[in-house]
């Protein structure tokens, strides 16, 4: 009683922490992970473990020995980056390349900018795009899904549905397969259903709002719909676009990254529409079959601009 604590209001805190948020996103990724393990077996497991362990380790080592600050790996953000990187890779990807990708993600994209909260670009995506540009062959040979496969580097590969949609329309698997995940692709992106379950969890826990995922998906749907309507032989249907490639994974888990997305819901809508448009432009007219990663990174670069010019709805603001 003789020593009372004096501090300004408020005197209570809601109890939210950084690690609780990170953990919630990791939990939301569990369905996608399980689907990945089911269809890609051993390879998926090896890559996930490698990416998570190396991301955490790199962050710890850099903070401990290079920056000489208190390590903050316990907040879970490095583990999450590792997980997201793994989900963006093909399951027959060599271990040493995964480690290189993790180093780029954590070392260059995150820690060199000052750690969590200061990175302008999504670390997992920087890692992925670095790997895509450096090792294009390994990054684009996608194993065919075989339940509980024990093959790793020797898995049978085939073109992804999205690649078959490029240029001239090949055979696109039916939508149900795309929805459940029984198609080729990176281990986390194949099942739209698993990702949507994760989205529902994130929305329920109020970790993210609907604005970014919905605006991205709606934009892609409308834009590809127009293209498909104009020329159905050249452009795939909007439904096929929604359920193929990294769109779902990107819209739900990568674009919604706290640090690199805009700070209010109006800005989020602009950002989401931007990602949607760039994605479709790359998919339909670019050199790569997939454009979600590039689209998100490009819009990451626009985030500070969006934050400067698009302000939240103020109290008492007149309707225009």
């Amino acid at each position: 009683m003789d020593k009372l604590i004096i501090s300004p209001a408020p005197h209570i805190h809601g109890g939210d922490t950084v690690s609780k948020n990170m953990l919630a996103v990791i939990v939301a990724l569990i369905p996608a992970l399980l689907v990945g393990f089911y269809f890609f077996g051993l390879g998926a497991l090896i890559i996930t473990v490698t990416a998570v362990v190396s991301c955490v380790l790199f962050e710890y080592l850099i903070q401990r020995f290079v920056l000489k600050t208190e390590p903050t790996v316990s907040d879970g953000s490095a583990a999450l980056t590792g997980l997201l990187l793994a989900l963006n890779l093909p399951s027959n990807f060599p271990v040493w390349m995964v480690i290189v990708g993790s180093l780029v993600a954590i070392g260059i994209a995150k820690m060199s900018f000052g750690g969590l909260g200061n990175n302008p670009f999504n670390p997992a995506l920087v890692g992925r795009v670095f790997l895509l540009i450096s090792f294009p062959v390994e990054m684009t040979s996608w194993p065919v899904p075989v339940p509980f496969s024990t093959k790793y580097l020797d898995a049978v590969t085939a073109a992804t549905p999205l690649a078959s949609m490029k240029g001239h329309l090949g055979t696109i698997p039916d939508t149900l397969h795309l929805f459940l995940g029984n198609t080729g692709g990176s281990m986390g992106e194949v099942s739209a259903l698993a990702i949507l379950i994760g989205l529902a969890y994130l929305l329920y826990k109020k970790i993210i709002s609907w604005h970014i995922p919905v605006s991205i998906l709606a934009t892609v749907f409308v834009f590809t719909g127009i293209l498909h309507f104009a020329n159905p032989t050249l452009f795939a249907s909007p439904v096929a676009h929604l359920f193929t490639g990294g769109l779902m994974l990107g819209a739900v888990f990568m674009a919604t990254d706290y640090v690199t997305s805009p700070m209010n819901t109006r800005g989020m809508l602009v950002y989401g529409v931007g990602i949607g448009i760039i994605t479709v432009l790359i998919r339909a007219f670019g050199a790569y079959p997939e454009g979600v990663s590039f689209a998100i990174l490009i819009m990451n670069a626009f985030t500070p601009l969006i934050n400067t010019y698009i302000k939240p709805k103020r109290f008492g603001e007149k309707r225009k």
């Binding site: 604590i5 950084v18 969590l116 909260g117 706290y258």
Partner: peptide
């Protein structure tokens, strides 16, 4: 145990302060 504030960490730009502000301001900014 409820009297002392916990140590401050980096802003992770989660937008929660913007979402809860009843005046529509951006507290982080």
């Amino acid at each position: 145990e409820e009297s002392i504030r916990k140590p401050m960490k980096n802003c992770i730009r989660c937008t929660k302060c913007v979402t809860v502000c009843p005046m529509g301001l951006e507290p982080f900014l």
